[in-house]
């Protein structure tokens, strides 16, 4: 029967052109950004002139930028630790324990995923001030870690749902206690989802700006450092660091997809490799 139903490919010509135009729209700013990072004559104008690597040279000797990069890496690593170490038990609890207020708990955990960052950021700012603490990288870590528990929970919950429970049951039947089973069966089985979720959280934290905006102290993260410079005027140095961020993100993402797809057969739909957190569901 399937032979009698050819894909209506002939009608797709116009649609294909439209799709190409959408792709052009999506990539146009990125391409411009990269090209102008080599432009000797500044961030604007046309055509680009005096192609140079000077902006990259300035960038590499710019201490403030690299301090900010270091801060961002510290924050992101700490956020990964917090989000994973709380997201894993949260995912386990959602997967296999019923307790009063469970539905509410799930929604609360996932809230930062869908709420505008300004609301989460300001709430935490008030909380920090109210408890008499000072704003610093620690408060940024608190904000990122807490907000990204949502991502850890959804990703790990999906990993748990796909996991074969028979192994755990066998381990328990054969006399291992819950704790041993957790360390020797559950955790090893989750190593891929854990690595993938960690990478995702790291990337999101490195880029985060809306929550950070309200929780930042004297030490800037990279996005906040760039943000501050934009107010003082734009130079292609910002194009240069943006280009590097772009390359870095793409590299991380390729690695992330590699992790995600390694755990599943190629017969599975491509979609299974998508972050569960981005599927647009709050349940």
């Amino acid at each position: 029967m399937s032979a009698a139903a050819p894909q209506p490919r002939t009608k797709a010509g116009g649609l294909g052109i439209y799709a190409a135009a959408v792709f052009a729209f999506l990539y146009f700013p990125i391409v411009v950004l990269v090209i102008y990072s080599f432009n000797g004559a500044g961030v604007g104008g046309f055509p680009p002139r005096n192609l140079t690597l000077e902006w990259y040279r300035i960038l590499f000797s710019d201490r403030a930028i690299w301090d900010a990069v270091l801060n961002s890496v510290i924050v992101a690593l700490a956020a990964v630790m917090i989000a994973l170490s709380l997201g894993l038990p949260a995912a386990l609890a959602l997967d296999r324990v019923s307790f009063p207020g469970k539905a509410l708990f799930r929604r609360l955990v996932l809230l930062p995923l869908i709420l505008p960052g300004i609301i989460t950021g300001l709430s935490l700012l008030m909380f920090v001030r109210y408890t008499g603490q000072k704003l610093s990288l620690l408060t940024v870590i608190l904000g990122h870690g807490t907000a990204l528990i949502s991502v850890a929970t959804t990703e790990l919950f999906a990993g748990l749902q796909k996991m074969d429970r028979a192994q755990e049951e066998a381990s328990l039947d054969l006399g291992a206690n819950y704790w041993q089973t957790f360390w020797r069966v559950t955790l090893p089985n989750l190593s891929l989802p854990l690595a993938a979720a960690g990478l995702l959280i790291f990337t999101l934290s490195m880029d985060e700006i809306a929550v950070t905006f309200f929780l930042i102290g004297r030490d800037n993260t990279l996005p906040l450092e760039i943000w501050g410079r934009l107010r003082r005027g734009m130079t292609p140095e910002i194009n240069a660091i943006s280009t590097l961020i772009f390359i870095f993100s793409v590299a991380l993402i390729l690695f992330w997809y590699h992790l995600r797809t390694r755990g599943q057969s190629s017969a599975e739909p491509l979609l299974a490799a998508e972050p569960e957190s981005f599927q647009g569901k709050l349940r």
């Binding site: 961030v43 734009m234 793409v250």
Partner: peptide, 21 residues
């Protein structure tokens, strides 16, 4: 989707500005 929000916003700023691209 993965490219930093700030990077994309900044790119449009350089494109649309008075002395922009």
């Amino acid at each position: 989707l993965w490219v930093s929000y700030l990077v994309r916003g900044y790119a449009w700023k350089t494109i649309l500005g008075g002395d922009g691209v």
